[in-house]
Design a protein around this nucleic acid. Sequence first.
DNA 1: TGCGCAACTGTAACACCTTACAGTTATAGG
DNA 2: CCTATAACTGTAAGGTGTTACAGTTGCGCA
Lengths: 249, 249
Amino acid sequence: MGSRTQIDGLIDMSLQADGVEGIQQLCSAISETYGFDHFIYGASFPTSLIKPFVLVISGHPDAWRNHYQAHGYLAVDPAVQHCTRSIRPLIWQDLTLDPKIDEKPFTVMEEARQFGLVSGASLSIRGSRGEVGVLSFSSERTAWQTRPEIDGAIPDLYLLSAYVHEAVGRLLTQGSLPFNPPELTTRERECLLWAAEGKTSWEISRILGISERTAIFHLQNAARRLNASSRQQAVALAVSQGLISLQLG
Amino acid sequence: MGSRTQIDGLIDMSLQADGVEGIQQLCSAISETYGFDHFIYGASFPTSLIKPFVLVISGHPDAWRNHYQAHGYLAVDPAVQHCTRSIRPLIWQDLTLDPKIDEKPFTVMEEARQFGLVSGASLSIRGSRGEVGVLSFSSERTAWQTRPEIDGAIPDLYLLSAYVHEAVGRLLTQGSLPFNPPELTTRERECLLWAAEGKTSWEISRILGISERTAIFHLQNAARRLNASSRQQAVALAVSQGLISLQLG
DNA sequence: TGCGCAACTGTAACACCTTACAGTTATAGG
DNA sequence: CCTATAACTGTAAGGTGTTACAGTTGCGCA
């Protein structure tokens, strides 16, 4: 239950994990170390608000994955719901679901049990580029049996979820995944920042000391790089991907 | 070093913490429990990208706070820099700062030592409404003395940083702070979401099955509620505050 | 020297957003 | 019953964004 060598070894492993397989092995190792039977990592990268790039690294039984996807459970999964609304870890047992009011979420957890995901916990993940994710671990044993050890493992698991996600972040910048975050020039970021503040092209040109045409030029280039079809979308993407540096002060 | 009763007590305290004073006491308790002398919590809420609402709850010596603010160290503080770029905890000792290249960050840490912040760690915080924050704990003892216990405390501290931030989130919704996140109607959120996707008023009207004038109407109302002076700014604020639900799939 | 690229500038037509005017319908709460 | 609010619709003038045209300057790199 959290001796120093345990988590240190897993952190080292996370810093070296390479490729999707490396992260799969890392999650497997974490899962085993803390006495779980299954895991799943899922994260959403805001390439688009409507259709984000989603990466799932699954250590779930195939039967459950197929059932889950076929029924569109992602939209009603109470663990996912919790992790998008809160940054606190969730121990599944703590969910208070009324079968009448929360019918669908209740069904998801009920059926998960039948597929061998009896007890478990979900860790909320939020990246520095607007990513929202979940890392869940589950056991085939009952909550009564696993509760004490899950309680004890939560701090370690929460920390490790950050390291797992950072390892995924490295995949992105290395280009191992079909989504590479665009790089903007200084001027493009400056123009986007002021556009996001509601300034017009002319106002931006006065702020930056350039001609109005040049401000328009930079904003167009930024939109092209972001695959945006309008200034509005460019602003939305830049903000959601954290490309516009919001100052801490 | 992390017996169950220790962190459980602090988590309970965080769930009941009320008001800024309650959170100040909570951070103090965490600091003492894990053998630190000072703490500081700082978070930035994206009311505006240029001028966000910033909340600081300080357990730092007044002399250091004044010195820090007078010299504008927030912009060059390497701990703050790290926490805005990464979600991993930072143990100050692990910073590799070259006095020649990283002159200003080096100076910040050097002077911090002279004010009694000798060794410590910073935990990155990211909230579900676009908040970016830092929770730091520091000791007057040297890194050599504190390293083992800091290493051991990191998982607990990282978890507690989430609970501290959630407690701050409760202050916001309770209206105890001079910033209340606006509430949008369903239609306003829908229109904003599609506007953020780069759709024009006419396209949004076709998607939602309403007249173009009505789409414009909802977007104007949304902009008014968000204190935005244009549709661009409304989109930027809605995205940065997480008011537009980006689906996990 | 040549190449790519960031940064810069201008004009013109057309599409789009903003503002201000003036309404209707339905639902929830005092 | 009255008020507030969500949701809905229309017109018109004027400001702003988008696209496509055609350039210049300066820097770093092969």
